[in-house]
Nucleic acid binder design. Structure first.
Lengths: 144, 144
DNA sequence: CCCATTTATTTGTAAATGCAAATATTGGTC
DNA sequence: GACCAATATTTGCATTTACAAATAAATGGG
Protein backbone atom coordinates (compact mmCIF):
# COMPACT_ATOMS: atom_id res chain seq x y z
CA UNK A 1 0.00 0.00 0.00
CA UNK A 2 1.34 3.39 -1.01
CA UNK A 3 0.71 6.74 0.58
CA UNK A 4 -2.24 6.99 2.91
CA UNK A 5 -4.06 9.53 0.84
CA UNK A 6 -4.21 7.23 -2.13
CA UNK A 7 -5.93 4.57 -0.06
CA UNK A 8 -9.63 4.65 -0.79
CA UNK A 9 -11.09 3.74 2.62
CA UNK A 10 -8.86 6.40 4.10
CA UNK A 11 -10.13 9.09 1.74
CA UNK A 12 -13.68 7.97 2.27
CA UNK A 13 -13.45 8.06 6.03
CA UNK A 14 -11.61 11.33 6.09
CA UNK A 15 -14.17 13.13 3.97
CA UNK A 16 -17.09 11.53 5.78
CA UNK A 17 -15.71 12.25 9.23
CA UNK A 18 -15.07 15.85 8.43
CA UNK A 19 -18.54 16.47 7.12
CA UNK A 20 -20.07 14.54 10.00
CA UNK A 21 -18.21 16.46 12.68
CA UNK A 22 -19.03 19.83 11.23
CA UNK A 23 -22.67 18.93 10.68
CA UNK A 24 -22.98 17.62 14.18
CA UNK A 25 -21.72 20.87 15.66
CA UNK A 26 -24.11 22.81 13.54
CA UNK A 27 -27.25 20.96 14.58
CA UNK A 28 -26.33 20.80 18.22
CA UNK A 29 -27.82 24.21 19.02
CA UNK A 30 -31.11 22.86 17.68
CA UNK A 31 -30.99 20.03 20.21
CA UNK A 32 -30.22 17.51 17.51
CA UNK A 33 -27.32 15.29 16.57
CA UNK A 34 -26.20 13.78 13.32
CA UNK A 35 -27.69 10.43 14.35
CA UNK A 36 -31.02 12.00 15.17
CA UNK A 37 -30.99 13.66 11.80
CA UNK A 38 -30.28 10.36 10.10
CA UNK A 39 -33.34 8.82 11.66
CA UNK A 40 -35.51 11.82 10.86
CA UNK A 41 -34.28 11.89 7.28
CA UNK A 42 -35.03 8.20 6.87
CA UNK A 43 -38.52 8.72 8.24
CA UNK A 44 -39.00 11.72 6.02
CA UNK A 45 -38.38 9.52 3.04
CA UNK A 46 -40.76 6.87 4.29
CA UNK A 47 -42.64 7.12 7.56
CA UNK A 48 -43.47 4.10 9.70
CA UNK A 49 -40.30 2.06 9.33
CA UNK A 50 -39.15 -0.96 11.25
CA UNK A 51 -36.14 -0.75 13.53
CA UNK A 52 -34.18 -3.17 11.40
CA UNK A 53 -35.03 -1.26 8.26
CA UNK A 54 -33.96 1.99 9.91
CA UNK A 55 -30.76 0.36 11.06
CA UNK A 56 -29.97 -0.66 7.50
CA UNK A 57 -30.74 2.68 5.96
CA UNK A 58 -29.02 4.80 8.59
CA UNK A 59 -26.03 2.49 9.15
CA UNK A 60 -26.72 2.75 12.87
CA UNK A 61 -26.29 -0.56 14.67
CA UNK A 62 -29.68 -1.84 15.77
CA UNK A 63 -28.98 -1.94 19.52
CA UNK A 64 -27.63 1.58 19.34
CA UNK A 65 -30.67 2.60 17.38
CA UNK A 66 -33.04 1.25 20.04
CA UNK A 67 -31.55 3.56 22.61
CA UNK A 68 -31.38 6.49 20.24
CA UNK A 69 -35.07 6.00 19.51
CA UNK A 70 -35.80 5.81 23.26
CA UNK A 71 -34.23 9.21 23.49
CA UNK A 72 -36.04 10.65 20.48
CA UNK A 73 -39.31 9.29 21.79
CA UNK A 74 -38.76 11.04 25.11
CA UNK A 75 -38.16 14.26 23.24
CA UNK A 76 -41.41 13.73 21.37
CA UNK A 77 -39.70 13.50 18.00
CA UNK A 78 -40.97 10.04 17.08
CA UNK A 79 -43.45 7.43 18.26
CA UNK A 80 -43.16 3.65 18.36
CA UNK A 81 -46.17 1.61 17.28
CA UNK A 82 -46.45 -2.15 17.19
CA UNK A 83 -46.90 -3.46 13.67
CA UNK A 84 -50.47 -4.78 13.53
CA UNK A 85 -49.47 -7.53 11.10
CA UNK A 86 -46.38 -8.70 12.95
CA UNK A 87 -46.26 -8.16 16.67
CA UNK A 88 -42.50 -8.64 16.74
CA UNK A 89 -41.95 -5.49 14.77
CA UNK A 90 -42.10 -1.84 15.68
CA UNK A 91 -43.12 0.79 13.19
CA UNK A 92 -41.49 4.09 13.94
CA UNK A 93 -43.36 7.25 13.05
CA UNK A 94 -42.38 10.91 13.12
CA UNK A 95 -44.23 13.03 15.64
CA UNK A 96 -45.05 16.72 15.22
CA UNK A 97 -41.92 17.90 17.03
CA UNK A 98 -39.92 15.62 14.75
CA UNK A 99 -41.47 17.18 11.69
CA UNK A 100 -40.67 20.65 12.96
CA UNK A 101 -37.09 19.69 13.73
CA UNK A 102 -36.73 18.14 10.30
CA UNK A 103 -37.85 21.42 8.72
CA UNK A 104 -35.20 23.29 10.67
CA UNK A 105 -32.42 20.90 9.75
CA UNK A 106 -33.25 20.57 6.08
CA UNK A 107 -31.72 23.89 5.01
CA UNK A 108 -28.53 23.00 6.88
CA UNK A 109 -28.39 19.65 5.12
CA UNK A 110 -28.85 21.35 1.77
CA UNK A 111 -26.10 23.78 2.56
CA UNK A 112 -23.74 20.94 3.40
CA UNK A 113 -24.51 19.24 0.15
CA UNK A 114 -23.75 22.47 -1.67
CA UNK A 115 -20.54 23.25 0.19
CA UNK A 116 -19.18 19.72 -0.13
CA UNK A 117 -19.87 19.70 -3.86
CA UNK A 118 -18.71 23.24 -4.55
CA UNK A 119 -16.96 23.36 -7.89
CA UNK A 120 -18.39 20.06 -9.05
CA UNK A 121 -20.34 20.14 -12.28
CA UNK A 122 -23.68 18.33 -12.42
CA UNK A 123 -21.98 15.59 -14.39
CA UNK A 124 -19.11 15.19 -11.95
CA UNK A 125 -21.56 15.08 -9.10
CA UNK A 126 -23.50 12.30 -10.70
CA UNK A 127 -20.38 10.32 -11.45
CA UNK A 128 -19.29 10.65 -7.83
CA UNK A 129 -22.63 9.58 -6.42
CA UNK A 130 -22.82 6.64 -8.78
CA UNK A 131 -19.34 5.60 -7.71
CA UNK A 132 -20.31 5.75 -4.03
CA UNK A 133 -23.33 3.57 -4.67
CA UNK A 134 -21.11 1.17 -6.53
CA UNK A 135 -18.58 1.00 -3.69
CA UNK A 136 -21.37 0.18 -1.32
CA UNK A 137 -22.72 -2.52 -3.59
CA UNK A 138 -19.24 -3.96 -4.14
CA UNK A 139 -19.03 -4.76 -0.46
CA UNK A 140 -21.69 -7.44 -0.93
CA UNK A 141 -18.77 -9.53 -2.08
CA UNK A 142 -17.34 -9.74 1.43
CA UNK A 143 -20.56 -10.22 3.36
CA UNK A 144 -21.06 -13.82 2.33
CA UNK B 1 -33.76 17.46 -0.37
CA UNK B 2 -34.78 14.56 -2.53
CA UNK B 3 -34.37 10.86 -1.88
CA UNK B 4 -31.83 9.90 0.72
CA UNK B 5 -29.64 8.01 -1.65
CA UNK B 6 -29.04 11.07 -3.75
CA UNK B 7 -27.76 12.96 -0.73
CA UNK B 8 -23.99 13.00 -0.80
CA UNK B 9 -23.17 12.84 2.92
CA UNK B 10 -25.54 9.91 3.17
CA UNK B 11 -23.82 8.01 0.37
CA UNK B 12 -20.45 8.83 1.80
CA UNK B 13 -21.32 7.65 5.29
CA UNK B 14 -23.07 4.55 4.05
CA UNK B 15 -20.13 3.37 1.98
CA UNK B 16 -17.62 4.31 4.65
CA UNK B 17 -19.55 2.65 7.45
CA UNK B 18 -19.94 -0.56 5.53
CA UNK B 19 -16.27 -0.84 4.72
CA UNK B 20 -15.32 0.12 8.26
CA UNK B 21 -17.57 -2.45 9.90
CA UNK B 22 -16.41 -5.28 7.67
CA UNK B 23 -12.75 -4.34 8.04
CA UNK B 24 -13.08 -4.11 11.78
CA UNK B 25 -14.50 -7.62 12.01
CA UNK B 26 -11.72 -8.91 9.86
CA UNK B 27 -8.85 -7.53 11.91
CA UNK B 28 -10.40 -8.41 15.24
CA UNK B 29 -8.98 -11.94 15.25
CA UNK B 30 -5.54 -10.33 14.96
CA UNK B 31 -6.17 -8.37 18.14
CA UNK B 32 -6.53 -5.16 16.19
CA UNK B 33 -9.28 -2.68 15.46
CA UNK B 34 -9.87 -0.27 12.64
CA UNK B 35 -8.67 2.60 14.82
CA UNK B 36 -5.49 0.78 15.73
CA UNK B 37 -4.89 0.18 12.07
CA UNK B 38 -5.40 3.84 11.30
CA UNK B 39 -2.69 4.79 13.73
CA UNK B 40 -0.32 2.10 12.48
CA UNK B 41 -0.93 3.11 8.88
CA UNK B 42 -0.22 6.75 9.71
CA UNK B 43 3.02 5.77 11.44
CA UNK B 44 3.94 3.54 8.57
CA UNK B 45 3.76 6.53 6.30
CA UNK B 46 5.81 8.65 8.65
CA UNK B 47 7.10 7.41 11.98
CA UNK B 48 7.48 9.66 15.00
CA UNK B 49 4.39 11.79 14.71
CA UNK B 50 2.82 14.14 17.20
CA UNK B 51 -0.51 13.33 18.75
CA UNK B 52 -2.17 16.30 17.12
CA UNK B 53 -0.74 15.38 13.77
CA UNK B 54 -1.97 11.83 14.20
CA UNK B 55 -5.37 13.10 15.21
CA UNK B 56 -5.58 15.15 12.02
CA UNK B 57 -4.47 12.39 9.73
CA UNK B 58 -6.55 9.63 11.30
CA UNK B 59 -9.65 11.74 11.98
CA UNK B 60 -9.59 10.39 15.53
CA UNK B 61 -10.41 13.05 18.11
CA UNK B 62 -7.30 13.87 20.09
CA UNK B 63 -8.60 12.88 23.52
CA UNK B 64 -9.81 9.59 22.12
CA UNK B 65 -6.46 9.12 20.49
CA UNK B 66 -4.61 9.60 23.77
CA UNK B 67 -6.44 6.67 25.27
CA UNK B 68 -6.14 4.57 22.17
CA UNK B 69 -2.39 5.15 22.25
CA UNK B 70 -2.30 4.23 25.96
CA UNK B 71 -3.80 0.95 24.92
CA UNK B 72 -1.47 0.42 21.98
CA UNK B 73 1.49 1.24 24.17
CA UNK B 74 0.44 -1.39 26.69
CA UNK B 75 0.23 -3.90 23.89
CA UNK B 76 3.74 -2.93 22.84
CA UNK B 77 2.62 -1.68 19.43
CA UNK B 78 3.94 1.86 19.79
CA UNK B 79 6.10 3.95 22.09
CA UNK B 80 5.72 7.55 23.22
CA UNK B 81 8.79 9.74 23.32
CA UNK B 82 8.98 13.37 24.37
CA UNK B 83 9.99 15.64 21.54
CA UNK B 84 13.49 16.85 22.40
CA UNK B 85 12.85 20.21 20.75
CA UNK B 86 9.48 20.85 22.30
CA UNK B 87 8.74 19.24 25.61
CA UNK B 88 5.01 19.78 25.17
CA UNK B 89 4.88 17.39 22.31
CA UNK B 90 4.96 13.62 22.12
CA UNK B 91 6.45 11.80 19.18
CA UNK B 92 4.83 8.48 18.64
CA UNK B 93 6.91 5.65 17.23
CA UNK B 94 6.03 2.16 16.06
CA UNK B 95 7.48 -0.66 18.13
CA UNK B 96 8.46 -4.08 16.80
CA UNK B 97 5.10 -5.67 17.62
CA UNK B 98 3.47 -2.78 15.80
CA UNK B 99 5.54 -3.41 12.72
CA UNK B 100 4.63 -7.08 12.78
CA UNK B 101 0.95 -6.30 13.17
CA UNK B 102 1.15 -3.82 10.32
CA UNK B 103 2.58 -6.50 8.08
CA UNK B 104 -0.29 -8.81 8.91
CA UNK B 105 -2.94 -6.19 8.28
CA UNK B 106 -1.50 -4.81 5.06
CA UNK B 107 -2.75 -7.63 2.82
CA UNK B 108 -6.22 -7.26 4.31
CA UNK B 109 -6.14 -3.55 3.59
CA UNK B 110 -5.07 -4.19 0.02
CA UNK B 111 -7.86 -6.68 -0.41
CA UNK B 112 -10.39 -4.15 0.81
CA UNK B 113 -9.13 -1.59 -1.62
CA UNK B 114 -9.48 -4.14 -4.41
CA UNK B 115 -12.94 -5.34 -3.42
CA UNK B 116 -14.30 -1.84 -2.94
CA UNK B 117 -13.00 -0.75 -6.32
CA UNK B 118 -13.94 -3.91 -8.20
CA UNK B 119 -15.08 -3.00 -11.67
CA UNK B 120 -13.54 0.46 -11.57
CA UNK B 121 -11.06 1.28 -14.30
CA UNK B 122 -7.81 2.97 -13.33
CA UNK B 123 -9.22 6.20 -14.68
CA UNK B 124 -12.48 5.93 -12.76
CA UNK B 125 -10.54 5.15 -9.62
CA UNK B 126 -8.43 8.24 -9.98
CA UNK B 127 -11.46 10.42 -10.65
CA UNK B 128 -13.11 9.07 -7.52
CA UNK B 129 -10.09 9.61 -5.31
CA UNK B 130 -9.59 13.09 -6.65
CA UNK B 131 -13.23 13.86 -5.94
CA UNK B 132 -12.90 12.62 -2.35
CA UNK B 133 -9.86 14.82 -1.80
CA UNK B 134 -11.80 17.71 -3.22
CA UNK B 135 -14.76 17.10 -0.93
CA UNK B 136 -12.45 17.13 2.01
CA UNK B 137 -10.81 20.34 0.91
CA UNK B 138 -14.17 21.97 0.23
CA UNK B 139 -15.04 21.67 3.88
CA UNK B 140 -12.41 24.30 4.66
CA UNK B 141 -15.13 26.70 3.67
CA UNK B 142 -17.17 25.92 6.80
CA UNK B 143 -14.33 25.72 9.28
CA UNK B 144 -13.71 29.44 9.42
C1' DC C 1 -51.33 -28.11 16.48
C1' DC C 2 -46.86 -28.49 18.71
C1' DC C 3 -41.96 -27.75 18.47
C1' DA C 4 -37.77 -26.01 16.62
C1' DT C 5 -36.00 -22.44 14.00
C1' DT C 6 -35.87 -17.97 12.35
C1' DT C 7 -36.80 -13.10 12.71
C1' DA C 8 -37.40 -8.52 15.38
C1' DT C 9 -36.31 -5.91 19.10
C1' DT C 10 -34.45 -4.89 23.55
C1' DT C 11 -31.28 -5.25 27.47
C1' DG C 12 -26.70 -6.16 29.93
C1' DT C 13 -22.33 -4.60 30.10
C1' DA C 14 -17.87 -3.13 28.95
C1' DA C 15 -15.42 -0.19 25.97
C1' DA C 16 -15.05 3.88 22.98
C1' DT C 17 -16.14 8.57 22.26
C1' DG C 18 -16.08 13.60 22.72
C1' DC C 19 -16.61 17.90 25.06
C1' DA C 20 -14.69 20.70 28.59
C1' DA C 21 -11.38 21.51 31.99
C1' DA C 22 -6.74 20.72 33.70
C1' DT C 23 -1.78 20.48 33.07
C1' DA C 24 2.57 21.45 30.96
C1' DT C 25 5.47 23.99 27.97
C1' DT C 26 6.67 27.47 24.69
C1' DG C 27 7.21 32.03 22.74
C1' DG C 28 6.71 36.68 22.50
C1' DT C 29 6.27 41.27 25.06
C1' DC C 30 7.19 44.64 28.23
C1' DG D 1 13.58 37.81 33.02
C1' DA D 2 8.61 37.69 34.55
C1' DC D 3 4.11 37.43 32.56
C1' DC D 4 0.43 36.13 29.30
C1' DA D 5 -1.44 34.23 25.42
C1' DA D 6 -0.93 30.29 22.49
C1' DT D 7 0.03 25.39 21.77
C1' DA D 8 0.25 20.20 22.99
C1' DT D 9 -1.41 16.66 25.54
C1' DT D 10 -4.00 14.43 29.10
C1' DT D 11 -7.81 13.77 32.34
C1' DG D 12 -12.74 14.04 34.16
C1' DC D 13 -17.00 12.68 33.13
C1' DA D 14 -21.24 11.81 30.87
C1' DT D 15 -22.91 9.86 26.71
C1' DT D 16 -22.72 6.75 22.85
C1' DT D 17 -21.56 2.62 20.96
C1' DA D 18 -21.44 -2.33 19.98
C1' DC D 19 -21.13 -7.18 20.96
C1' DA D 20 -23.62 -10.85 23.13
C1' DA D 21 -27.41 -12.62 25.48
C1' DA D 22 -32.31 -12.29 26.49
C1' DT D 23 -37.02 -11.81 25.19
C1' DA D 24 -40.94 -12.11 22.17
C1' DA D 25 -43.40 -13.45 18.18
C1' DA D 26 -43.95 -15.69 13.69
C1' DT D 27 -43.23 -19.49 10.54
C1' DG D 28 -42.87 -24.04 8.82
C1' DG D 29 -42.27 -29.12 9.26
C1' DG D 30 -43.85 -33.18 11.09
Amino acid sequence: MGPLDSYLPYLLNRAGARIATAFNEEVRPLGATLQIWRVLAALREHDGRRMGDLSDTTSIEVSTLTRLVDNMEQKGLVARRRDANDARAILLHVAPAGRRLTQRILPIAERYEAVALAGFSAGETEVLKAALRRLYANMDELES
